[in-house]
């Protein structure tokens, strides 16, 4: 079993574990939004879980690194923190911060990260850019809030994992990317109203059962 040194703490983990998972399992928190242990190929899209590894020139996302024996890792250097904070502020700049009206208030991953990084939820440095409309009600049972969503893709992953195929997808591109549930027939085949794995996995409350809101 590989032994590694993270922030001067020695940890021992199973071979083949990702560095992020190894840290999380050993009580070392690294901010992350898009990672799930069940993903074979982590998407590394949220760009939050940067760490510094001795011998590597630049900070690297810990979800894409497999642990090696004698790895020396730092999770809180200046350059790592700077990336954490910038990525987080960028995400907040497109997030409609309205915690007290949000059903995941106090359970939200963004609140947790804000506290951890000591960054205020209201962005000071960047202008806010929100999408129109604020809510997508196309899905028969779910409402989707694009201005809460961080596009981590966990909902798509978990739906596919459970049902073989996902009724959710990324749609459009670039800044306009959203989660979409296009195609009514497929949705009805899965009985979404009874499943809600996607709602449960969402780290930021971007998906919610319609009836839960009433």
């Amino acid at each position: 079993m590989p032994k590694l040194l993270v922030d001067n703490k020695e940890i021992e983990v199973k071979e083949g574990t990702t560095l992020l998972q190894a840290c999380l399992d050993n009580g070392i928190y690294i901010p992350n939004l898009c990672y799930l242990e069940s993903m074979d190929d982590p998407s590394a899209s949220c760009r939050m879980c940067f760490v510094e590894i001795e011998g590597e020139e630049k900070p690297i996302t810990s979800c894409t690194v497999t642990v090696k024996d004698d790895m020396v890792v730092k999770t809180d250097t200046l350059s790592v923190r700077r990336l954490h904070r910038t990525a987080f502020r960028l995400l907040l700049s497109v997030h409609h911060v309205d915690c007290k009206n949000c059903h995941v208030n106090k359970k939200c991953e963004l609140q947790r990260i804000a506290k951890y990084l000591e960054v205020g939820l209201k962005p000071k440095h960047l202008e806010q850019h929100l999408k129109e409309p604020d809510i997508d009600q196309d899905h028969p049972f779910l409402d989707y809030y694009p201005n809460r969503c961080v596009l981590c893709g966990k909902c798509i992953h978990i739906c596919r994992k459970k049902h073989g195929q996902s009724v959710l997808t990324f749609a459009k591109r670039g800044f306009d990317t959203v989660i979409s549930s296009y195609g009514k027939n497929d949705v009805s085949s899965l009985a979404c109203e009874k499943c809600v794995v996607c709602v449960d996995i969402c780290p930021v409350g971007a998906l919610i059962l319609k009836e839960a809101q009433e």
């Binding site: 998407s43 590394a44 899209s45 949220c46 760009r47 939050m48 910038t86 990525a87 960028l90 995400l91 700049s93 497109v94 960047l126 202008e127 850019h129 961080v150 596009l151 990324f170 459009k172 591109r173 670039g174 800044f175 306009d176 990317t177």
Partner: peptide
């Protein structure tokens, strides 16, 4: 680049948008 960003990762998706603005 902002129009052509695939939208997957935070820095490119949102960061280039701010640069453009």
């Amino acid at each position: 680049t902002q129009k052509e960003s695939c939208g997957k990762c935070t820095f490119c998706r949102i960061g280039t948008h701010h640069l453009l603005r």
